[in-house]
Write a protein that binds this DNA or RNA. Structure first.
Lengths: 247, 247
DNA sequence: CAGTGGTCTAGACCACGAA
DNA sequence: TCGTGGTCTAGACCACTGT
């Protein structure tokens, strides 16, 4: 299935891609300037830039205005474990993965009232978590918990809670069911700035709602990850001959 | 956070987007030709095309070579239910959703041997399912089952199996656990052609592995959906004080 | 300041779709 | 054939980064 109508910028992208994947140009290295490359390939700057756009879309190249085009370090994927609402141990234990948590109180409104099934204006506690690895954002979590469900001491920088939050784990106590909705979509402006989603242009968004045995929603979480850097794993255990009805 | 440096093509994209979302230009309608639009906005064709590229990336506009630019009909999302490996009843019952299934025998190789934990060359049955709605592909499933686990009659177009397969459901009998890995990534060439992924440029890929009580893999499925048209829902029931260890 | 990427132009030629 | 989108050029000017 070769291109019947080869386009110059694809040829150039192919050539550069090979130089990158074969290690001729190493991760972190700067490519020649666009003007130089255009000159070398005998094309206009526009054409050369469209070649780079291809590689950028593939996550191989990062463009930095005023500095140059750089070969991206191949990102290790982070793994989100569904049902537990946590990063997997291997990922979470990674020392290079730093997480900052900001805790605030907000009134419920909009989607949150729907997700949490609380009236508009109900007091919520928001955990705003951003995880970084080497300056590059790896994940964004906004976790909301009804204020009255929050044990005392949480807002006083109690370390264990910070520990839990930074793994993006379910914070509510003893959830009976966790419902997670996954979709791939372009980032909201908020997410785009927080994740600096210059590369993947799409985020893997997970909306997590945890419910206790009485049916009360004990947590709602909005998670967003760069689409090309995350994998979400969900495991379902089926009891034989006890296939529950779907909700 | 307004653009400090407005770019003409973004302004044009904004203008066109408003005309689309307010209904001034209706779904299915053709936009004026690029030459006309470039003329009206007093920009070059390149600039105008980059404006359209923005809208195309947002899924608002579909470009058809030789015909024009068309406003896309807002797609209803299809819902994939995790754990059950099926489209939800509402989606699956949709009369407009047609599914074609092709059944073939293939030897295991590459990823499949790993997923299914079978030796290279083991006989597998492949269900190749494509679901369409009104000419636009909605999902692609490649379901693999070890040949000896397949009840007789399946390959004879037995209707109930076709029924099951076209819902992309788990085909193996009585799986004990289903493990689903979700990621957002660009489509493989296969997927791109099958899904005609001109719009979203990324697919939501689900790898599903079903295991029986003895630990044997009874099914592996590779699912791919246009990223902007699907939602996957996973529900986990936690037994109180019986938090299983993670595998 | 010099070097880099970001945007844009006016026009050319090619490839596709419907007559 | 004609009108459409797809690609490309050679050069211009602007914005960002470092010295």
């Amino acid at each position: 299935m070769t291109r019947s109508v080869p386009s110059r910028h694809h040829d150039i992208a192919d050539d550069l891609r090979q130089q990158i994947t074969t290690g001729r140009i190493k991760p972190g290295e700067r490519l020649p300037s666009e003007a130089d490359l255009a000159d070398r390939y005998k094309v206009s700057t526009v054409t050369l830039r469209s070649a780079l756009a291809v590689l950028q879309g593939e996550g191989l190249v990062e463009k930095i205005h005023g500095k140059g085009n750089f070969v991206r370090r191949p990102p290790r994927k982070i793994v989100y474990v569904g049902g537990w609402g946590t990063l997997d141990p291997w990922t979470a234990a990674d020392a290079a993965l730093r997480v900052t948590v900001r805790t605030t109180s907000v009134p419920a409104d909009g989607h949150l009232t729907t997700l949490l099934k609380v009236p508009t204006g109900s007091p919520l506690t928001e955990f705003f978590c951003v995880s970084h690895e080497e300056e590059s954002p790896r994940g964004l979590a906004r976790i909301y918990i009804p204020h009255d469900l929050l044990p005392a001491g949480v807002l006083d920088d109690e370390p264990s809670w910070q520990e839990t939050a930074l793994r993006l784990a379910v914070l509510g106590s003893q959830p009976a069911t966790v419902r997670e909705t996954v979709c791939a979509r372009p980032p909201t402006p908020d997410e785009a700035s927080a994740l600096r989603t210059g590369s993947s242009k799409t985020v893997l968004a997970i909306t997590r709602v945890a419910t206790d045995t009485t049916g009360r929603v004990v947590e709602a979480a909005l998670l967003a990850f760069p689409g090309d850097r995350v994998e979400a794993v969900f495991t379902t255990h089926h009891m034989t001959d006890e296939r529950q009805t779907q909700g």
